[in-house]
Structure formats: C-alpha cells, structure tokens
Computed example of a mutant assay.
Amino acid sequence: MPDAPDSRRPHAETFLTDTTPPALRLREDAWDLTVCDGPVIATAIHDGHTLHPALHDRIALDEQSRWREEDPLTSLLTQVGDARLRVRTSRFEVDLNRPRAGAIYATPEASWGLDVWISPLEEAERAASLALYDRFYAMMGELIDRTVDRWGCVLLVDIHSYNHRRDGPDAAPADAADNPDIELGITTLDPKRWGDTARRFANVLRRHPVRGALPDVRCNVRFPTGGHFPEWVYAHWGERVCTISPEYKKIFMDEWSGQADIPALYALRDGLQHAVDAVRPEFLA
C-alpha cells in the first residue's frame, strides 16, 4: 500500500461542501489550484521553486542547481485541465512524488548525488514539510473523490520534465534513442479499460510539430515504474482514474541557463491540448 495518509474520505477543511466545481475553503500558499467543472485534472507537482523561510539558511544548493533539477514552466502545460494544480514549493523541501518516508532528501543518493542540506534538518523542520505533504494528499484525495463522483471517471495528466544535458552546457545531449521528446508514463492505469485511450493520446501528440519537427513520443522508456503520486492514485481509485504522466525532455528550455524557448513551450502545450481533447469524450458521463 502506498505510504501516504488515506485521503479518499473527504476532509471538510479542504473544500467548501456542496459546490460544483469544488472550491477551496482556504488559500494554500504551497500551491495554486484552479477548478472548473470537468473530468480532466492536470498537475505540475515539481514546478515549484520556493522554500520555507526557515530553510533558506539550511540549503546547501545554489539557486541554479535547484532550478536545474526542478520542472520549471511545466505549470503552463496544466492549462489543458479542468482542474489545474501547480505546486509552488520546491521538491527540495518535500518531494510529493515520493513515499512519505523518503519525501525529504536526506542523502546524496536520494537526490542525483547532490548534497542538499548543510546539516541534517531538525525534527521540527521535517515535521513542517511533512505536514505540507499530508495536506497535499488530503486535498488531492478529496478533489479526485469529488471529480469521480461527478463524472464517474477521471483523466489525470501528471506533468513532469527531465534533463538530457547532464554532462554540461557545452557537451553533447544524451542519446535520443533513450531520451524521447515526450515520454508517457502509463504504468499506473488499468490497461484493459484505458490502454486504447493511452494509445490514442500518444498518437495525437505525435502529430503536432515542435520546432518544425514531429516529436518523438514513446511510453515507459526512462521511467518504467512511475512515481509515488500516480501509484497512490491507482492504489486508491483503480480503473476509475486514467493517469497519464507526460515527461517532457527539456527541449523547451536550456536546462543550464534557464532560458525558455517560448514557441516550443506553446507548441508542446497545444499538442497536449489536442491529445486531451481527443480522449475527453471517454470521460464524460
């Protein structure tokens, strides 16, 4: 069973009751959430860069190193969803795509060989970050429950990005054979119910060019096991939620300088919108 609180039961403090679409009761500084009435939820849980003020003097990494390992700009792609979530807190404070016990990077082995903290965090600092983790899963549990109750099933688009120039800004990029432009993680969906849906989704993405070329779109190449968040969704909702996790190679930015390629980013957003539109009728009650 995934290591997260059982969030499937509604938490009255998260959303107002009896509203369609669900409305947040209180603002949460750790994320931005917009909800319209519809069956598509799009998330960018690694987009964020902010840290709790108490951690600013504890972090060993400079801004650029943190930025490089985060998923900046992926929140723009969440525009394809009816519910759109951008987590503002950095994965270096708490990684919402890992089991709770490993959500705070304690060793270099947990974080691409990087020494994240000047010294181990105090228990109170860890507790504050893990409380945020618990609030996230409670909120998502209620949001998915309400959306399933409204529509019968949900399309969850769990958006990420990845680096392909790890050897340095002047080195050759990683071999394209093992690094598709868009990788779709589809290990945490019911293949009998949603396998054809995932294939249609991928085929539509392949038809929409980026920087003058059709993108290389493949499934489960670099990340064959999925992350904790989609695994948790599948464990709780099974075939009622079709989770597709696009991992975008950072062809929309320079991962070393942070310079964005805005036309490429919008082309990727438009391709994703077409893919969502193509399968949306399958999620309408």
Rank of each mutant, 00 (worst) to 15 (best):
S7N: 10
D6S: 11
V80S: 03
L33M: 02
L205I: 12
A23S: 12
G152T: 08
L73W: 14
T147F: 08
L61C: 06
V87D: 01
W237D: 02
R206M: 11
F136I: 04
L61M: 10
T89N: 01
A138H: 12
F283P: 01
D216M: 05
L55D: 02
E28M: 08
E282T: 11
S245A: 15
P215S: 09
A176Q: 14
F15E: 04
M140N: 02
V221P: 05
E123N: 11
R25M: 07
R8E: 10
G227M: 14
V279A: 06
A174T: 05
S111K: 05
G258R: 00
A131R: 09
S65V: 14
R135D: 08
D95F: 08
P169I: 04
W256K: 06
Y133K: 09
T74Q: 05
W151E: 03
S161F: 02
D216T: 07
W151R: 04
E255T: 00
D145K: 09
P72E: 01
T107I: 09
N220V: 07
H208P: 02
F136A: 02
A42G: 02
M1I: 13
W256G: 01
I244T: 01
A172I: 06
R240F: 08
L130P: 01
F229N: 01
T17Q: 12
R126Y: 07
P21I: 09
A110S: 15
A42P: 02
D29L: 11
G38L: 00
T107A: 13
R27P: 04
G271W: 02
L24H: 00
D167F: 07
L156F: 07
V204Q: 05
R222F: 07
H46L: 03
L77G: 01
R86H: 03
C219Q: 14
G185T: 11
D57Y: 06
T89H: 02
L85Y: 00
C153N: 13
T107N: 10
H11G: 15
A260F: 04
R100A: 13
E142T: 15
P53N: 12
G212D: 02
D95K: 10
E282A: 15
D149K: 13
A260V: 13
A275E: 01
K249S: 10
F15L: 08
T187E: 09
T243Y: 00
D167V: 01
I251G: 11
L76R: 12
C153P: 00
D47F: 05
A138K: 11
E69C: 04
R126F: 06
R218E: 11
L268D: 02
P39K: 05
D3G: 01
P53R: 12
A42W: 01
D95Q: 09
A110I: 04
L284W: 10
G271Y: 03
S75F: 08
L205E: 08
D29K: 13
P21K: 09
P22Q: 00
I144C: 03
S90E: 04
H236Y: 08
A106M: 01
D170S: 14
D57F: 06
A267F: 00
R222E: 04
P209L: 08
K249H: 07
R68K: 13
A198P: 07
P22W: 02
G168V: 12
S129M: 12
F229D: 02
L284K: 11
R84M: 05
E28Q: 13
E13S: 14
Y234S: 13
L24M: 10
G212C: 05
A172H: 09
